[in-house]
Amino acid sequence: MNNLYFTEEHNLFRKSLQDFLQKEVVPYIDKWEQTGEIERFVWKKFGEMGFLGIKYPEVYGGMDLDLFYTIILLEELQKVNSGGFAAAIWAHVYLAMTHLNAEGSEAIKQKYLVPSISGDMIGCLCITEPFGGSDVAGMRTTAIKDGDSYIINGSKTFITNGVLSDYLVVAAKTDPTAGGKGISMFVVDRKSIGVSATKLDKLGWRASDTGEIAFDQVKIPAENLLGEAGKGFSYIMQHFALERLIMGVNGHARAEFALNYALQYMSDRQAFGKSIDQFQALRHKVADLSTEVEFCKAFNYAVAYRLNKGEYVVKEATMSKLKSTKVADDVIYECLQFLGGYGYMEDYPLARLLRDSRLGPIGGGTSEILREILAKIIIDKKTYKPAT
């Protein structure tokens, strides 16, 4: 399977990344899980290694590599057993920075994208609102033109990197009467007067800072508009395909990590005179779970291959997230059961994995919303097209 998509260069990159994570990240994970704050030094180290600029143009300090390098980064981040740390990295690189690169002016790219790639700045993407949830078109945050400025008012919630980031990529309505067609995207400096953030206390993803953001008469330059006014909804929808695939890949990767850990435990754990991986009930459960993970993995790689070629894969990426996050939850639940009482202990990785995984079917579009999107595509023959 891997030979279909991964070259020797990909494999060398994976090994280099694994070594880096074991040396520079894993020793600090428990501390960050307890404090809820990832120390800034690690961002700079990620930048120095080029890991924050994998898919971005070389002219801005990136490496301009194909999507399967991104797949490797996502998979390996899941193996440090901190969904919060992984989310902080990919939310910066593939949510906030994606908009800067795709819609930002040259001035914006120099001011925000270049230091984002080097690890000197951290970004977040602000779309979800306290009263809106998955209803992006129903957002209430406004950005009203005032001469050569925009005035932003409103609030956002469940924002990964929402407290400690240096800038915010914000969706707001420039024409409140136009529904989805009245949404525009902006980059807002954290130091702007009127921006405030409250940290949220979460079940999982404990290492990441998830915030609720308030914008009170925040004045930003008009040139902080990303792309064209009124096209924000199209930009968001276009990038959702990547976000959903990312969460699908995260799902199969953490499920695989859980299975591998459980199998090692089962081979060591003795009961009734033999290792518990020799009991048929457990062996057959492992066979079923492994099959589910491999199906998701193969599908996600195929979708990544098409997305890497520039195809518009909104349906397939939606399926990826819907299925893979559910499989991850199911697999991790069963793997915790394999460990018995030890699975419930914080000294073992499954308890944290279970908490972190539960956000998969919620964040980036709930499974219920994804099913309705797919129903519209499959039953109603609705078509989604790239922003033009």
Score class of each variant (00 low, 15 high):
residue 304 A to S: 13
residue 79 K to M: 10
residue 329 D to G: 12
residue 105 S to T: 15
residue 362 I to V: 14
residue 76 E to A: 03
residue 145 K to G: 04
residue 330 D to T: 14
residue 155 S to V: 04
residue 357 S to C: 14
residue 16 S to R: 13
residue 126 C to D: 07
residue 340 G to I: 03
residue 365 G to F: 06
residue 209 D to S: 15
residue 280 Q to K: 13
residue 223 E to S: 14
residue 161 N to K: 06
residue 60 Y to K: 04
residue 212 E to F: 10
residue 35 T to M: 03
residue 81 N to C: 10
residue 194 G to E: 05
residue 387 A to F: 05
residue 367 S to N: 15
residue 339 L to D: 01
residue 104 G to F: 03
residue 8 E to G: 06
residue 179 G to K: 03
residue 49 M to R: 15
residue 306 R to C: 11
residue 180 G to P: 07
residue 308 N to C: 09
residue 136 V to R: 03
residue 322 L to G: 00
residue 51 F to E: 01
residue 98 T to D: 15
residue 15 K to R: 14
residue 71 I to T: 10
residue 68 F to L: 06
residue 297 K to Y: 09
residue 277 D to W: 00
residue 25 V to E: 00
residue 153 N to G: 07
residue 276 I to E: 06
residue 36 G to Y: 11
residue 36 G to I: 08
residue 351 A to E: 11
residue 372 E to N: 11
residue 291 T to R: 12
residue 282 L to Y: 10
residue 269 R to W: 08
residue 70 T to Y: 04
residue 312 Y to Q: 09
residue 77 L to D: 00
residue 286 V to A: 13
residue 115 P to Q: 04
residue 87 A to Q: 05
residue 48 E to L: 08
residue 293 V to L: 05
residue 175 D to I: 04
residue 312 Y to K: 09
residue 163 V to Y: 13
residue 105 S to A: 11
residue 91 A to V: 05
residue 124 C to N: 04
residue 299 F to V: 06
residue 378 I to K: 11
residue 272 F to V: 12
residue 17 L to E: 04
residue 173 K to R: 13
residue 44 K to G: 07
residue 342 Y to H: 12
residue 46 F to H: 01
residue 143 A to Q: 07
residue 349 P to Y: 00
residue 92 H to Q: 01
residue 110 Q to N: 14
residue 1 M to I: 05
residue 196 S to P: 01
residue 319 M to T: 10
residue 49 M to C: 14
residue 345 M to E: 11
residue 293 V to T: 01
residue 58 E to P: 05
residue 40 R to P: 09
residue 91 A to R: 09
residue 305 Y to E: 15
residue 335 C to Y: 00
residue 228 E to C: 06
residue 45 K to G: 04
residue 205 W to T: 10
residue 336 L to C: 07
residue 15 K to H: 10
residue 19 D to M: 06
residue 348 Y to G: 03
residue 80 V to F: 01
residue 182 G to K: 05
residue 192 S to G: 00
residue 90 W to E: 08
residue 200 L to W: 08
residue 88 A to W: 02
residue 364 G to A: 02
residue 132 G to V: 06
residue 104 G to V: 07
residue 293 V to I: 12
residue 328 A to W: 02
residue 212 E to W: 07
residue 50 G to T: 09
residue 85 F to H: 02
residue 8 E to K: 15
residue 193 I to A: 13
residue 61 G to H: 09
residue 95 L to S: 12
residue 273 G to S: 10
residue 122 I to Y: 05
residue 140 R to S: 11
residue 112 Y to I: 12
residue 228 E to Q: 15
residue 126 C to T: 09
residue 154 G to R: 00
residue 352 R to Q: 14
residue 131 F to M: 12
residue 243 E to Y: 10
residue 242 L to I: 11
residue 25 V to A: 05
residue 245 L to E: 07
residue 303 V to L: 07
residue 320 S to Q: 09
residue 24 E to V: 01
residue 361 P to C: 06
residue 45 K to W: 06
residue 29 I to M: 05
residue 191 K to W: 08
residue 109 K to T: 09
residue 329 D to A: 12
residue 117 I to F: 03
residue 209 D to F: 06
residue 92 H to F: 01
